[in-house]
């Protein structure tokens, strides 16, 4: 990977873009209270509407994209973002997987519109909520709902120095073992998505005595079918197994297949 610092005297330009989302992942950057000034010193924050009304024209060296693509206008806009960005990194489950709003993909979106809005013809929306990668090529995807802000700093730093981000690809189970949390499924029979879920949260839920609910999305090659059999053994019904895989990362291939297999 080429370093972002093409000319030694120029600070790389950072842009933060928002599509359909809750703002939480871009807020993660403002939540780096102790590192914010250092980041602002290392890069030129050229486009970040949540933080500033001044806009520096592109092209941008690194674009962080939050949110999923859900409208015809946004489908055009993400192509423009790609065009003006040397590197494009998706941040969070919406941009990476389609987000909770991708639950519409399993239904007829017109029914959804009619449930919320009195005058459906005012609404302009796509049938599906899709991840950025379904629309344009992406250089890196950071998973999580929300993302881990330390991993965000790692990703920004890595792109600044032209190296691959160090973000462990293993499951949440490994994080439980590392922090010494007793397995909630083995010890308490609590259904837990940890075995199939990408690490990054530091196994938060089991440490708070609940099962992982998969907000970081699938790890590499997850064995979802096996986990579903375990869930069945713990007394979960088919509907609840389908619901477990159908949340913030429902539209990722492994979770989508698994939830569909249990849908009645």
């Amino acid at each position: 990977m080429m370093a972002l610092v093409a000319e030694p005297k120029r600070k790389p330009k950072l842009a933060v873009w928002k599509f359909a989302s809750c703002d939480g992942c871009q807020l993660s950057l403002l939540d780096c209270e102790d590192e914010l000034l250092a980041v602002a010193g290392a890069v030129e924050i050229a486009y970040f509407m949540e933080a500033s009304r001044s806009v520096v024209k592109g092209p941008y060296d690194l674009s962080l994209v939050e949110g999923s693509i859900t409208t015809p206008h946004d489908a055009e806009r993400i192509r423009e973002v790609r065009r003006v960005s040397r590197h494009l990194v998706t941040i969070g489950a919406c941009a990476t997987a389609g987000g909770i709003q991708a639950l519409r993909n399993f239904k007829d979106v017109n029914d959804f519109i009619a449930m919320v809005y009195a005058v459906p013809q005012y609404i302009d929306t796509l049938v599906q909520s899709t991840p950025v990668s379904a629309n344009v090529p992406v250089d890196y995807e950071l998973q999580g709902c929300p993302i881990n802000k330390k991993q965000l700093l790692e990703v920004i730093g890595a792109f600044l120095f032209g190296r691959r981000p160090v973000v462990p690809p293993h499951s949440v189970c490994i994080e439980c073992k590392t922090r010494g949390t007793v397995c909630v499924m083995v010890a308490h029979g609590t259904p837990c998505l940890g075995p199939v879920t990408h690490a990054g949260c530091n196994a938060l839920c089991p440490a708070y005595h609940r099962g992982c609910y998969g907000c970081y999305g699938p790890k590499e090659t997850p064995n979802t079918a096996s986990l579903s059999r375990w869930f069945g053994g713990l007394g979960m019904g088919e509907d609840d197994i389908a619901r477990a895989f159908r949340t913030f990362n429902a539209w990722t291939e492994p979770f989508r297949k698994e939830s569909t297999a249990h849908e009645r």
Binding site: I100, L103, V109, D111, M115, V116
Partner: peptide
């Protein structure tokens, strides 16, 4: 122009 997310429906 924030895009819709249909929480009440989902």
């Amino acid at each position: 122009f924030e895009p819709l997310r249909f929480f009440e429906a989902l």
